[in-house]
């Protein structure tokens, strides 16, 4: 008679007890938002957190850690204890920052492999809008005009390598057109520059531009989506028009620091899956004009990887600004 099975049983019981004690989540979860309140990350995070609370039975609190175009909040999450209690509502720019750091030989704020995907929540394609005085109604006319006047048209963006700069560079690279770039400090100022006629075009989020499109202050030309945007059914996509590689979304997805225990990760994934079906969540997302594009961890991981590769390549192509001059 050996004592080994007994020990094993005791150990197993202990492990079970420990497991039961560690029933995830046993306390409040912190959802980091790397941008100030009111931005896309924040308006996606809040309804998601509210819906997840109902599923998890624990509070999910939002912490805004803005700074350096999201690098501060992303780095905070990357270096947080991977216990599942700190998660991040990441935006697509999470993939651009390390690439830009590399380009400038900066100490990287974080690396992408420090994260593990949980679920994609929303994805909005950007839409190219022009000032109404610009005599173009289609992408073809725009490209023709830009080719006729190389380096004379200018576009505004949310900032260098920012969420509204990358899609424009993608388009310029694919169409081999040269334009002037006016970086600003955010999506609002970028749109204002077009409204005031200081630049001819910009890329805009579907919700941000909608009021101005309806009143005719800007003219939408083409969308970066894979499919046409439901709110702009008459606006074609770059892909339709033969630009196969020009596809860009500002997406928001939940990620956590790598090393979250599988059990906790499963709970979190399950919570998001149920959260996106929540009627209040759906209603809120519809009213801020964001498209819910739920993808569970495996598909989200693949999607993110492809997106990150595309963006990193693009950052290299764009290169350092003064190097081009």
């Amino acid at each position: 008679m050996s004592t080994r099975p007994l020990v094993a049983a005791a150990l197993a019981a202990f492990a079970l007890a420990a497991g039961a004690q560690e029933q995830f989540p046993s306390r409040a979860i912190t959802m980091v938002v790397a941008f100030p309140p009111g931005g896309v990350a924040d308006t996606t995070a809040r309804p998601t957190a509210a819906a997840m609370e109902k599923v998890l039975g624990q509070p999910v609190t939002i912490t805004n850690r803005p700074g350096a175009g999201g690098a501060v909040g992303n780095a905070v999450t990357a270096n947080a204890k991977p216990d599942g209690y700190t998660i991040l509502m990441a935006l697509s720019s999470i993939s651009v920052i390390p690439a830009a750091d590399e380009l400038f030989h900066r100490k990287p704020a974080y690396a992408l492999d420090q994260f593990v995907p949980i679920a994609l929540v929303s994805a909005d394609p950007t839409i190219l809008v022009v000032h109404p005085s610009l005599p173009v109604k289609s992408l073809k006319e725009l490209v023709a005009l830009a080719r006729a006047k190389p380096g004379e048209l200018s576009f505004s963006s949310s900032g260098l390598y920012g969420a509204l700069h990358m899609p424009m560079e993608m388009f310029l690279y694919a169409s081999k057109v040269k334009m002037r770039h006016l970086p600003t400090t955010g999506g609002g100022p970028a749109l204002t520059a077009v409204l005031g006629g200081h630049v001819e075009l910009t890329a805009g989020g579907p919700a941000a531009i909608s009021g101005h499109v309806k009143s005719g202050k800007v003219r939408p030309i083409v969308s970066w989506g894979a499919e046409r945007h439901p709110s702009y059914p008459e606006i074609p996509t770059f892909r339709e028009l033969g630009y196969k590689d020009v596809e860009y979304y500002i997406w928001a997805g939940l990620v956590g620091p790598r090393g979250i225990p599988d059990a906790a990760l499963t709970v979190l994934r399950g919570a998001v899956r149920k959260a996106v079906e929540d009627p209040v969540f759906k209603k809120t997302m519809a009213s801020v004009g964001s498209l819910v594009q739920y993808k569970d961890a495996p598909e989200f991981g693949k999607y993110w990887e492809a997106d990150a590769k595309r963006l990193a390549r693009l950052v290299k192509i764009v290169g350092k600004v003064e190097a081009k001059k």
């Binding site: 100030p36 309140p37 009111g38 931005g39 924040d42 308006t43 955010g186 609002g188 749109l191 204002t192 409204l195 919700a207 909608s210 009021g211 101005h212 309806k214 009143s215 202050k217 809120t284 519809a286 009213s287 801020v288 004009g289």
Partner: peptide, 28 residues
């Protein structure tokens, strides 16, 4: 009048009404 946020403060305020489905713009 234009529905454009010209400062961080008005950006947050616009977000507050956008959450309710009121889209800012010149037609507000």
């Amino acid at each position: 009048a234009l529905g454009i946020p010209t400062s961080p403060i008005t950006a947050v305020m616009l977000a507050a009404i956008m959450v309710h489905g009121v889209l800012p713009g010149p037609l507000l």
